[in-house]
């Protein structure tokens, strides 16, 4: 199983470390052709507007096509890229999960925070969650499943093959979220 990490800009290197820690191969994705031999894709944190601008129309369409049959996990900026709709300001997105993302919704870097959040799907365990200039999941469609909330804000969701989180599991020691995604990829292949 080979996992791709979109490496146009952002925290892609940290996901490589996580996956290798779990004994999985990963591959940096910067061209359409890189998508050919991967089974799942992580879109890391970074600046979503930067990634959008580097990604040309052809690559953008190929990412959409890839997502028709393969799981994609968007983290922070990656979550914004896979949203159905983006606000503040509005921008293009892949529309992989039916939700509306609000950029920089918590404020600037001084408003970034760390929270202990309970995850039902991880045996109700408490996890340290790092939010950096994070977006909010402002609204979700009826078939989207909420995986976690914090202070009434939705922080993690999934819909069919895809999942999105507004915090950064790659910045902590926890590997559970990556393992959960790897299982999704395994089930899809």
């Amino acid at each position: 199983m080979n996992i791709g990490i979109l490496a146009l800009q952002g925290g892609f290197a940290l996901h490589e470390q996580k996956l290798s820690q779990l004994g999985f191969q990963s591959k940096r994705i910067i061209y359409s052709r890189d998508l050919d031999d991967i089974q799942g894709l992580i879109i890391p944190g970074g600046e979503s507007s930067t990634m959008l601008r580097i990604c040309n129309a052809l690559f953008f369409d190929d990412l959409k096509k890839f997502a028709n049959s393969h799981p994609v996990w968007g983290i922070c900026a990656g979550a914004i890229l896979i949203a159905g709709k983006v606000e503040n300001p509005s921008q293009e997105s892949l529309g992989l999960i039916d939700f509306s993302a609000q950029r920089n919704a918590y404020g600037n870097q001084n408003d970034s925070f760390i929270a202990e959040i309970k995850f039902e799907f991880l045996d109700n365990s408490l996890k340290e969650c790092i939010f950096i200039r994070a977006p909010k999941i402002a609204s979700i469609g009826p078939s989207v499943q909420v995986l976690a909330t914090y202070n009434k804000e939705i922080v993690m969701i999934e819909q069919n093959l895809h999942m999105a989180s507004t915090f950064h599991p790659e910045l902590t020691d926890c590997t559970d979220f990556h393992e959960y995604f790897l299982k999704k990829v395994e089930n899809a292949t």
């Binding site: 800009q9 952002g10 940290l14 600046e47 970034s112 790092i130 950096i132 910045l171």
Partner: peptide, 18 residues
């Protein structure tokens, strides 16, 4: 220590960019 994690975290999110 937490703020340091957040701040180095932001640095990491600026990697591969201009």
């Amino acid at each position: 220590e937490n703020q340091s994690k957040l701040n180095i975290g932001l640095s990491r999110m600026l990697c591969g960019g201009v």
